[in-house]
Amino acid sequence: MQRHIISVSSITYAIKGRDLLRKQGFRAYIERKTNSNGNTGCGYVIVADGNRQKISDALMNSGVKILQINSIA
């Protein structure tokens, strides 16, 4: 199963995104971003396991704008 590190614009969207992914059955949690990588977003990332496309769609359909998504095998 793939793991995805998702940058969003604010802690509000990070929590919102985590909660809605959990409601849809994905394993998801919030983590402090340790690699600043351009200092985009809020300093937090959503870490989620599952199908990348489905996770992206779930977030985007609920108005959670994804700034960056990195997938780890």
Binding site: S9, S10, I11, T12, Y13, G38, N39, T40, G41, C42, G43, K65
Partner: peptide
């Protein structure tokens, strides 16, 4: 706002 701190431009998404 605690978000996008490298930018001098105010974020354009609510609530921040």
């Amino acid at each position: 706002t605690g978000t996008d701190s490298v930018q001098f431009i105010q974020p354009d998404t609510l609530p921040e």
